[in-house]
Amino acid sequence: MDTVSDYVVEVEGLGRRFKRTVALEGFSLKIPRGGVFGLVGENGAGKTTLIKHLLGLYKAEQGTVRVFGLDPVQEPEKVLGGIGYLSEDRDLPGWMKVKELMRYTAAFYPKWDPEYAEKLRQVFELDPKAKLRTLSRGQLAKAGLLAALAHRPDLLLLDEPSSGLDPVVRREILSAIIRTVADEGRTVLFSSHLLDEVERVADRVAMIHQGKLVLDAPMEEIKDTHHRMTIRYTNGQTAKPDFPGMLSCQGRGNEWTIVFQGNVNAAKEHLGNGIEILQVESPSLEEIFVARVGRSISIEED
């Protein structure tokens, strides 16, 4: 699996349509080796479509997809051998028992570590004789995670790992992600709309909106370049402020709260003299996300 490239995933100009719906358009993304990559977007923004392209479950209609420097459609065995995947809808066959799942999955991965698998099973408190059909949602997610982790994949792909799960199971999944990435050189790509989680664990975040990449940057950079500023007009003006880099604006009258990207001083200059800045804070990822997505909606309405 050793390739020259520093990137685990390279997506170039990817486009995909489902009949009339555009799922992805001109999508380019590079995921560096190591670290946790968070993929955020609304439902139906194209997150799952992207992940399925990485797995080779979808063939790129436009553009190219490379995982470990290889095309997942041309060389599925090589690519999939290094990937651990937890699907969104936990489509494991219900008739299988936990131990049968472990045995079945082990057959495909030469790197499968039986001791590690057994350790995970005990940590997750999975009964080896239980059928998957009888497991609760949380346990099923854990069983899926076990199958995805036990061969110590180079790339762990988690599609909505924590949707519909209780906080206890969510914690376990997050700590599994952290453990995985703590091993050198492993990469985790996970999609989620629980932005709180993404902000906790991700090194780097990509936002997808309506099949397009809206933002792709390291977490620190995002936090450093986005600001939430509360201003008050002192000159009696009440118009909605607007300047380049502004993402969203809320308020009425002479007091407005603005989320924007860029330098605070530059923003101040744009706004002119007649204002007083009440507060400058850094917004949470959730606020940034809502600001960005909200903005594109308002543009469309115009």
Binding site: L174, R179, V181, A182, R200, D203, M219, E220
Partner: peptide
């Protein structure tokens, strides 16, 4: 770093920073 990261459920790199 690793222990704290797992305990707080945050990225190890964040703790390191």
């Amino acid at each position: 770093i690793r222990v704290l990261a797992e305990e707080l459920l945050i990225n190890p790199n964040t703790v390191a920073r």
